[in-house]
Design a protein around this nucleic acid. Structure first.
Lengths: 111, 111
DNA sequence: CAAATGATTCGATGATACTGGAAATATCGA
DNA sequence: TCGATATTTCCAGTATCATCGAATCATTTG
């Protein structure tokens, strides 16, 4: 994964709404969701959502396909794993990060 | 890791210079590097670098400590692993991402 | 074709981020 | 204390990002 691609992906996810969209699509699985459903679930104006979807799409984190009038968006797991791979490569690859990742199972309800 | 913290970390890394700084510090290891050395290595004006270091520090990705006149910055591996943990939790936790992460080893240290 | 529907693009506005020189702060050594 | 060194803070100017209503585009249906 190129440096530029990593930055694009990071800045795409570095936004409240886009992170929410992405998580929603990850949960929705490979079948994805139409834009309208996302807008309703996240309570976002259509034009705003479209802006964010385009951003995520440009960054390669989600894919777009048409089904009739609806545009279906789905998370691109390959890109996601590439990003995580890049981060772990630069963090855990050499050092003390890896062992810390696993125990992150605790479900805390911090505000 | 809270949602807000994740966004802070992502947006901190979503910048060419800050990502470079962070990678440099990761490579530098727990001992870190003084601001001046970072500025020279990355060829950044002191005031610009200071801005970025403050940003990374606010996001919890790096730590600051003083050694004489020098301020030493070091990567915070815990925060980093928290971020990676969050991302994998939302990606690989449920699906097909995990298997892709592991094989990302071209040059690996003795296991 | 025309109407209805799902979604994008346009455009103006406000907010936030980045940059880097100059001035200020902190520390060390003589 | 003075001067040199390491960094930060201040400030302004510039650039980029986010918002969302209105207009537009694409598709289906009658």
């Amino acid at each position: 994964m190129k440096n530029k691609a990593v930055i694009d992906a990071l800045s795409a996810l570095a936004n409240e709404h886009r992170l929410a969209v992405f998580r929603l699509l990850v949960q929705a699985g490979p079948e994805g969701q139409p834009a309208g459903a996302i807008a309703e679930a996240l309570d976002l104006p259509a034009s705003s959502l479209s802006f964010h979807l385009a951003h995520l799409n440009r960054a390669g984190l989600i894919t777009q396909s048409r089904d009739g009038r609806s545009l279906i968006y789905a998370a691109d797991f390959t890109a996601m794993s590439g990003l995580v791979g890049f981060l772990t490569e630069n963090c855990c690859g050499g050092a003390s990060c890896a062992p810390v990742v696993a125990p992150t199972q605790k479900k805390r309800k911090a505000s």
